[in-house]
Simulated assay, not measured.
Amino acid sequence: MTAAPHPHSNPDCRAVSELIGRVGDKWTVLIVQALAKGPCRFNALKRQIGGISQQMLTRTLKTLERDGMAARRVHATVPPQVEYALTPLGHSLSVPVLALAEWTFAHLPQIHANRAAYDDEGPRRVAA
């Protein structure tokens, strides 16, 4: 009897794992959420997403562009203005991302209360 291959040894599993890690990253989620409202210039996007560094915003936008989820448009002005927008693929990603954001906002008070109770009392024991 041969051992089953490790589940992450399948190239498709590794690719899916890598992509889920990327689209589930907090910066990707926040950028997709912001761009779902419409095209946005780099600096305006940076202002909307509190706490993101210029380097991280650039890196995440390049990754989204490489994956075909965001498009970069350079306007011929002095200085050049760069605008980012979701592609159709990016808009399809925005559906679950916006649903996740909505769920988070709806449940944030409950989660904060649960954390406070846990921190005060410790973990709850479930009877077997």
Score class of each variant (00 low, 15 high):
residue 99 A to S: 06
residue 64 L to A: 13
residue 4 A to L: 04
residue 19 L to E: 13
residue 121 E to D: 06
residue 95 V to N: 00
residue 93 L to R: 02
residue 85 A to L: 13
residue 119 D to W: 03
residue 113 A to L: 09
residue 89 L to M: 13
residue 28 T to R: 08
residue 29 V to D: 07
residue 35 L to A: 05
residue 58 T to R: 15
residue 89 L to H: 15
residue 93 L to W: 01
residue 15 A to Y: 06
residue 119 D to I: 00
residue 44 A to W: 06
residue 63 T to H: 12
residue 61 L to A: 04
residue 46 K to N: 15
residue 91 H to I: 03
residue 22 R to C: 08
residue 77 T to L: 05
residue 99 A to D: 07
residue 128 A to M: 04
residue 47 R to M: 14
residue 41 R to M: 09
residue 76 A to F: 13
residue 127 A to T: 13
residue 47 R to E: 15
residue 6 H to N: 12
residue 114 N to C: 00
residue 50 G to T: 03
residue 41 R to H: 10
residue 70 A to M: 10
residue 29 V to F: 05
residue 12 D to Y: 01
residue 40 C to I: 08
residue 80 P to K: 06
residue 62 K to E: 12
residue 120 D to R: 03
residue 91 H to G: 00
residue 68 G to K: 07
residue 75 H to E: 14
residue 108 L to Y: 11
residue 19 L to D: 13
residue 117 A to D: 07
residue 27 W to Q: 07
residue 118 Y to F: 00
residue 63 T to Y: 06
residue 79 P to A: 13
residue 46 K to V: 15
residue 116 A to T: 15
residue 52 I to Q: 06
residue 28 T to E: 09
residue 38 G to C: 14
residue 88 P to L: 12
residue 32 V to N: 10
residue 116 A to I: 10
residue 4 A to T: 01
residue 26 K to N: 05
residue 124 R to S: 01
residue 74 V to G: 02
residue 16 V to K: 00
residue 50 G to S: 01
residue 6 H to C: 08
residue 57 L to K: 05
residue 57 L to G: 07
residue 10 N to M: 09
residue 120 D to F: 01
residue 39 P to L: 11
residue 42 F to R: 02
residue 54 Q to P: 14
residue 31 I to F: 00
residue 53 S to F: 05
residue 54 Q to I: 08
